[in-house]
């Protein structure tokens, strides 16, 4: 008899920790790991809503599957970009790559 709020609070904590990681970390790889945490939080939310609010529809579950799929693609691409930047700039720290400005 776990109320839905438990899962939602847990996913909030997970998402906030992800935000903290994304904002505080310097290494692009660590930032990516934090992004994964945020995606996990979203998946938990989707599934919780699916099983608590609309058990006869599976939309939440399906979306969780798509989240995982897209996350896999995202990780693959993002790591390729990180490799590329590392090869060009000899660093994977995002605050040392500041060419996105005037």
């Amino acid at each position: 008899m776990i109320p839905i709020q438990h899962f939602l609070v847990l996913s909030s904590i997970l998402f906030s920790l992800g935000i903290y990681g994304v904002l505080a970390r310097r290494s692009a790889v660590l930032i990516l790991m934090s992004v994964e945490l945020m995606l996990q939080a979203v998946s938990i939310n989707f599934i919780a809503f699916a099983v608590y609010l609309a058990p006869e529809e599976f939309t939440g579950l399906i979306f969780a599957i798509f989240v995982i799929t897209v996350a896999a693609a995202e990780v693959g691409l993002a790591l390729a970009i990180v490799l590329r930047i590392y090869r060009n700039k000899a660093t994977a720290n995002v605050d040392e790559v500041d060419i996105m400005k005037w």
């Binding site: 920790l17 935000i19 904002l23 505080a24 970390r25 290494s27 490799l83 994977a92």
Partner: peptide
Amino acid sequence: LILFAMMLTRVRDVPQALDGPQRPFAAMAA
């Protein structure tokens, strides 16, 4: 994949360099 990427980019485990200067703001935002 992530471990591979770490290996390839040789993210050295220098503790003080892992967090950026806006860590307090990050904590507040989170």
